[in-house]
Design a protein around this nucleic acid. Structure first.
Lengths: 216, 216, 216, 216
DNA sequence: ACCTTCGGGACATCCCGTTATT
DNA sequence: AATAACGGGATGTCCCGAAGGT
């Protein structure tokens, strides 16, 4: 069984510039980890409390119930992490398609074995909760669409810059990119083999290179 | 919350030629559904029992515990369904690449709203249980590798037949196809929008068409 | 089957000076009785709860599990009772050997039929749990050694006072006394006959009288 | 936890001259061991079955229920073992008191660590079941009285032979001997220290020697 | 004589929330 | 803002025994 430690994994490498987090933030972080480890339904409030030293009363002072805590984790933790890692870098990229490729390569190289084992926080929660709780689905979908939209924008821009061929639909390509990325992580999770991720990611990068205009 | 009914969805459309299932089979089928709906950890044995009319004593006669029941579901239900739907049709296909494309299209068209909402049984379980229970991971990985291997074989055969360009690696492509398929289903689950699946699947099919040799 | 009532038996005559016991104490007392009646393994938490009116949540707030509840019963209930009944009176006795004899006689006379039937709480638990759970064994052994040590001290003091013959080993004698006492209670339990206890206890007292120095 | 093996311990060293035991005997032996290990209430019929390879149907063909199986174990297994070990040797002893002493010494030397840990089958069952089930109590008491009676007879004979002083009551002494023996085993069980048994047993032997007439 | 299958209850555990108090 | 105590339901597990077949 996986131990909840303070390692510097890809998914919960601590965000910088946040001095002495208050109770609410402590709960949020611990909840994020617990949920990432065990899923939302199997996440235990008692575990979260014992890992933070916070009491149950304090928790229920800040969050009305477990579900709302889950919502807050999505909106305040996961959303930010996805933005920082996958969306922001694309926004003002000079060469969007190249930036995207490098982003994928960087992520692949940064993965630890634990990251592989646990998978993407967004994807995990979506897989588990989307069919069960509409509140989860809506919030997760919002992030998902944001991500995919940013990708579509980047590709469109790249097309306008003449960096990407024009006979592909940006929406379709971005949709496929996100799906393939999530699928790659899933493959890594099942096989627990980083080579599976690199193999699959390599396929994606090769595909993206096919989209580039052949410069001469 | 989704109700467990007897609808004819893609994932649990009843297999044919199995008259009057015995107790064990009844449990297995109900467990498959319950797990598909709620995930393994949240699956309730009591639900399974009440949906089958089987008693606890009977269940524990056939399976020593919940985990072993989960294993049996993987090995005896999920494995067969994946084989029937995605592997067998490829085995003796005359035109493997075309068969593969048609397979994807057929699956996309066959999906009901419920299927979209629930996602792929294999992918769901992998997402949830691979990091938590090695027994699950190994069994799921076996199916996953079988599937991917069958795809790689098909692509290699297509290359030998001159139907697919030779400058792609069959392993890499098959790995990416499986990942993208799983990712597409995930996207559909989050958005609960069949167009998302078609969009994403369309991207995959377009990609596969790129791999075909340009006949003249 | 024996009913759990509030009788004034030797073993659970309520300790004095403890007004309005709190929840934890109530659980502890009820657990002590239930364990004394049925043994630890067969002790039912539901019985304990129903006899106290306490709920499951409260019980598991105070004790992490049944085993720890058992440990607490040993350390906080049984230990005190043995001390009060068999150890403390010996500590500052002027004539230790005579005090010991009187102690045995008093205990014998105080026994009710129920006491005989249920036996010694310490001995029962030891018999049942020592081979099964090391935590039980260690805690029970601690009390046992305390008791035996107090007896050995008393005998040694008696020897120094010239009240007991010097050609016996205090350790050996005290070990035998404790064993014989426990054995007497066992005999009473099997025969459910108070005369058996008196017969056996009489033998012990006769033996102790043999150890006295013949004053002239 | 103690494993159920086939070791040659004092308590269940196999009785000789019993070729290829039938089903009933196999159940009886396995039940004896299981009960000795875990007590009667915690003894699991399923364990007994899995250790014998016998099925539940067969068990319930030979015994109407668990309680009757327990009775049979007492009457057919425990009774015989106590007789063989502690009663028969005394019956025709030329020097009863000396034989008794040697018997105690032999038993003490024969004990393995496992024997110490598990205690006397008779005493264990009595401690656990006498207050709970009258059927158990009666059957166990019968063996107990048989044993004690045999001891009383032996002492009486020794007195007639002039080997034991006349100013002790044979009944009382025999009662105390049995109690002390049981108590010694209990002490060994708690302390899990063979020296405790030897210390306590030494005290008993010393006491017995006091009863001898001083030959000159 | 013996086997498989099954019935149904009891048990320890854990969980999410609530309430009174400070 | 935070705490300790408590409520009460649901869960997986196990167990003894019954029933019907061979």
């Amino acid at each position: 069984m996986i131990e909840l430690n303070d390692s510097n994994s890809y998914w919960w490498r601590p965000l910088q510039g946040q001095p002495e987090p208050d109770t609410r933030a402590k709960i949020l972080n611990a909840a994020y980890r617990e949920i990432h480890l065990n899923g939302f339904q199997a996440a235990s409030l008692n575990n979260i409390l014992s890992h933070t030293g916070v009491t149950k009363g304090a928790l229920y002072h800040h969050f009305p119930n477990k579900t709302e805590l889950g919502y807050a984790v999505i909106e305040e933790v996961i959303a930010r992490r996805i933005s920082l890692s996958f969306i922001d870098p694309l926004l003002n990229a000079e060469n969007p398609i190249q930036t995207l490729i490098e982003l994928i390569q960087m992520a692949g190289n940064a993965f630890t074995l634990e990251d592989i084992s646990l998978g993407c926080p967004l994807g995990n929660l979506a897989q588990e909760m989307a069919p069960i709780d509409e509140g989860f689905r809506v919030r997760l979908n919002k992030i998902y669409q944001l991500w995919q939209g940013a990708l579509a924008d980047a590709i469109t821009r790249a097309q306008h810059q003449g960096l990407v061929i024009n006979d592909v639909d940006a929406q379709q390509v971005s949709s496929m990119i996100v799906a393939t990325l999530e699928g790659c992580l899933s493959a890594g999770k099942i096989s627990q083999d980083i080579n599976q991720i690199l193999l699959c990611g390599g396929g994606l990068i090769q595909y993206l290179n096919l989209l580039k205009t052949t410069e001469e």
